[in-house]
Simulated assay, not measured.
Amino acid sequence: MTQSIYIQPISTVTGPQAVEGDAVRLGGSMAYAREFAVITREGGKVVDRQLATSRSIADLLGGLPDDLAAEGEAQWSNLSTVHEPLQCGERVIRLDAPQIMGILNVTPDSFSDGGKFMDDPLAMQDQAADMHEAGAAIIDIGGESTRPGAAAVWEGDEIKRVIPAIEYCKGMGAAVSVDTRRPAVMQAALDAGAAIINDVSALRHDPRSLEFAASSGKPVILMHAPGPSNEAAEDLHSNADYTAVAFDVFDWLKERRDAALAAGIARHNIVLDPGVGFGKSVADNLNLLNALPLFHALGQPLLLGASRKRMIGALSNEAGSNKRLGGSIVLAQLGMDAGYHLLRVHDVFETVQARNVWRGLRDAGVTDFTGLPG
C-alpha cells in the first residue's frame, strides 16, 4: 500500500532571532515556523509521526525510504519558497506580507448581502470604491452564489452581472479577480479588465477551463470543494468524505496543482485555497484551520476565505452573516499567523486595520529582538 508524507509546521515564532536562527520563513511571508511534524500516512491512517527543526530535518528525511525522502525534501524546499508577485495588468501584488481581497457579490442570493449590489448599481459602485479606498489589493467579483443549495446560473446571466462591476473597478484602478467556474465568463471578464481567475471548482467544472486558463497567462486560484467535477453536478458541497480533512485536502490540492502545471499554467500563477466552508462540517473546518501552515508544503501562494462563514455563526449562538465580524477577524489573524498571502473578506476596512497592526507586531518581532543580555 502506498505511503504519503506531509511536513506540517506546528510551532511559530515572531522571527528567527527568537530561536537563534532555527526557524523557517513560510512561503516568503512574515510567518516563521520552528518545529515541524513529519507525518507518514498509509491507507489514510497515520503510521508515523516524528518531530524536527531546520537543524535536524535532513537527518530525519535521510532515514526514510527513497520515495518518501524525495517527496519530503520537495515539501521541505516548498515550505520556504519565496513567491513572485502576482502580475495583474498594471498592478503588481506583492506576496511578502498579507494582502486583502475584497468580496463584491453581484448576485440575487448571496448569503451575506442578498442581492444589494446587483439590483443597485450605485450601491455596487460605492461598495467597490469603499473597499478600494480602504486598502483592498484585489476586488473579487462574483455573479453566482456558491452557498449550499444555491440555484445554477446561466453563463449569459452571469456575464451580464459581473461585467459592469469589473469595468467600474478596473476604471478606478483596482486589480480585479473574477469568481467563476465557466470559461465563457472567464473570457468576458478578462476582456473587461479582470486579471485573476478565481475558480471554486479548481478548474474542474468545465473540461475547457484548464486549457483556457493556461492560454490566458493569468493567475488562477484553485479552491478545494469536494463536489463532483462535471457541468451537470452543481453542488460543490456534496461528496464530502474525509479520513483526515487536512491531509485529504492537501492531497486533493496537490493533484489540482499538478493538473494545472500539466495543462501549461505557470507555477507562479497558481494560488491554492483550502476551501473553508465548502463541503465541511464545523469540526472539519476547525481541524482544517488549525492545520493551515501545512499547505505551504505545496509550494504555492495561499489564499484563505473564511469571512462570515457559517461556522462562525455556529460557534456564536447562530449569529447572522452580518454579525460575524469578530469571528472573521479572528480567522483572518489565524491566516496571517500561518503565513497566508491573500485574505478574501467582506469587511475590508476592519481587516486592513487588523493586518496593519499585526504587521507592526511582526516587524517589531524581526527587527527589535532584545531576548539576549545586553
Rank of each mutant, 00 (worst) to 15 (best):
S216N: 14
G217E: 07
G217S: 05
P219T: 05
V220A: 11
V220H: 01
H224C: 11
H224F: 02
A225R: 02
A225P: 01
P226N: 10
G227Q: 09
P228N: 13
N230W: 10
A232R: 14
A232E: 13
A233D: 11
N239V: 12
A240H: 02
T243Q: 14
T243D: 15
V245K: 00
A246L: 04
D248L: 05
F250Q: 09
D251Q: 11
L253P: 09
D258R: 07
A259R: 11
A260T: 02
A260P: 06
A262R: 07
A262V: 14
A263T: 14
A266N: 08
I270G: 07
G277P: 13
S281A: 12
V282S: 11
V282R: 03
D284V: 06
N285R: 00
L286S: 07
L286F: 07
L288W: 00
N290W: 02
P293D: 11
L294N: 12
H296V: 04
H296D: 14
L298I: 12
L298H: 04
G305S: 06
G305D: 02
R308D: 01
K309Q: 01
M311N: 00
I312N: 10
G313T: 01
G313E: 05
S316P: 03
N317C: 15
G320Q: 15
R324I: 05
R324E: 13
L325V: 11
L325E: 07
G326N: 09
G327M: 04
S328Y: 02
I329Q: 05
I329K: 06
V330E: 02
L331T: 09
A332K: 00
Q333C: 07
G335W: 03
